[in-house]
Structure formats: C-alpha cells, structure tokens
C-alpha cells in the first residue's frame, strides 16, 4: 500500500495535500481501506483453508494454517454431489441467461423503437414486475409447477429465473436503448431494412456493454438463487449449488472440512468470473446508471 502515499501525483484527480495533518488523515483513511479489505478477505481465506484441515484442527486451532495441504476434502466434496450441483447450476444459469437476455432485449427494442398501442401501459406492466416479490408468488407457484409437471426439473427454475429477471433486465436495456442515437436505425429504415434486421444488425451490437452487464448480473443472480431452488427441486440431480450445499451440510454435518471445501468450490467460479469480466461489468453499469 505504501506506493500510494509516495506517489500522490499519480492520482488522476487529487491535488496532493501537503499539510502534515492532511497526510496523517490520508494515512488513516488508507489504513481504513486496508482494514476493510482484511475484514472482507480473512473469512473467505479461512473458509478455503478449512477445506484443507482435519476436523480436529478445525475444532482445536481455528486460526492455524493447515498442518498439511491435502485436497482430500475437496475431492470428497466434489464426489459427494458437488459435481452434480455444479452441473445443475451451469445448466440453469446458462439457459436462463439466454432466455432472459433475449426476451428482455426484444422487449426493450419494442418499447423504444416501435410504437406499440398502449405503450406506457406495457412499460408499466413489464417494469412493474420489479416491485413484486418472489416470496409472495411462492405458494401459488408450487401448485402451478406441479400442474405443469415441471416440479423438480431444471425447467421450473429456468422459467422462474427468466420471469422474475425479465423486468429488471428490460429496465436496464431499455434505459440504454433510449440513449442510443436514432439516426443509424432511421437511416437503415429509409433503406428498407426490416425491424428484425435493424434489431440484429444495428441495435444489438451497439448495446453490447449493457448486455454484458446484464449477463453478469444474471449470473450473479442465478448462480446464487436459493428460495426457488429450495422449493422447486428435491433430488440430487436437479439441485443447484446453493441448495445442494445446505443438503450437504445436513448430510455430512460432522465432516466440516468437506463442508468448507464444498463452500469454496461453489464460491470460486463466481469470483473468478467477476474478476475476469469486471471491466465490462463496470463499464456497462456506468453507462446504464443514472439515466
């Protein structure tokens, strides 16, 4: 962290403060940032470490490093269901990304580039879905899913994740599309391009930053969703990671290393995805926010 205090000139906006009290204040704020980072990271590191330790170590010396680095607990967790949960999570997240983003992008296009009869009502209807809580819909949804024969299938989750995320995703894409210049698509329309072509060839490519953000936000949602997954799936083959983890916890509750290993396995992919994509993610949010 020392490099920062030595090179205030490198800061892109701040004018270096020279007064000694200001330097002290800055040092304290830097220390605060470091302390918060430690507070964030330490529990996560502890979690990953515990996957390497034996039960006795976890109980008797919670702070110590593992005595030896054994991947046994990670392997056991992977074999005892985690691999299946990961697969379910991948399927549900993957398919619902496609359905959600496409349905939302179409809707956003329709709401910004065409003149639908009763447009304000349609906007209100779709975006109004954001205000409705999944918990409230739970009881009737159980019966619906059973009637459709979708109970305990990945489709139940895919449908629900799509339905409950379309309003928010449409909201983001619509806000972005509203700000896109209209000359391009109007020129294309003059040239006789169809709506479908304008959407595919002009608008969609221009929307790439917000689409990427929407995908990432959807991954964060679908990979981590618990309420629906808990209610609508009940077998090891259909359970996604968050629910699978709690079942693992009750089935292997006394093998703590394995539980910690499973937790780490389920957290790691999402953290990696976030780090790989954060530039686009933040860019999309920056352009999409504050409209």
């Amino acid at each position: 962290m020392t490099d920062i205090s030595h090179m205030p000139a490198a800061a892109d906006d701040a004018v270096p403060a020279r007064a000694p009290w200001a330097l002290l204040g800055r040092a304290m704020l830097q220390a605060l940032l470091v302390a918060i980072a430690a507070l964030v990271l330490y529990p996560l590191i502890w979690m990953a470490m515990n996957g390497f330790r034996s039960n006795a170590e976890i109980f008797n010396s919670p702070f110590a490093l593992p005595a030896h680095w054994s991947f046994a607990a990670y392997a056991a967790a992977w074999q005892n269901g985690v691999s299946q949960f990961v697969l379910s999570s991948l399927v549900v997240t993957g398919v619902s990304i496609v359905t959600t983003v496409f349905i939302s992008a179409w809707a956003a296009y329709g709401l910004t580039r065409t003149t639908i009869p009763g447009q304000p009502l349609v906007v209100g209807f779709i975006l109004g879905g954001m205000m409705l809580s999944p918990t409230v819909a739970l009881v009737p949804l159980v019966r619906m899913m059973q009637d459709f024969g979708l109970y305990n299938t990945h489709w139940a989750l895919i449908l629900l994740y799509t339905a409950f995320r379309v309003p928010f995703t449409t909201f983001l894409i619509r806000a972005y599309m509203l700000d896109l210049p209209r000359d391009l698509d109007e020129a294309a329309r003059m040239d006789g391009a169809s709506e479908g072509q304008i959407f595919r060839k002009i608008i969609l490519p221009l929307c790439r930053p917000i689409l990427v953000s929407c995908v990432i936000l959807h991954v964060l949602f679908a990979w981590n969703e618990y309420l629906f997954a808990m209610i609508f799936t009940n077998s090891p083959e259909t359970r996604t990671l968050p629910v699978g983890l709690t079942s693992l916890m009750s089935k292997h509750g006394t093998d703590f290393a394995q539980v910690f290993a499973a937790m780490t396995i389920s957290a790691l992919p999402i953290v990696i995805v976030f780090f790989l994509t954060q530039r686009y993610f933040i860019r999309g949010l920056t352009e999409g926010i504050g409209k």
């Binding site: 159980v142 059973q146 109970y151 209610i231 009940n234 079942s247 009750s250």
Partner: peptide, 18 residues
Amino acid sequence: EDDDSIKGKTSTLVASNA
C-alpha cells in the same frame, strides 16, 4: 432424505400428489 429434511420433503411430495 435426512432427519432435518424428511418432514419438509414428505409434505411437498404429498401436496404435489407425488
């Protein structure tokens, strides 16, 4: 299922006629 989850699971299965 295990001791903790069997009640909830049974109820869901009963409610869904499954």
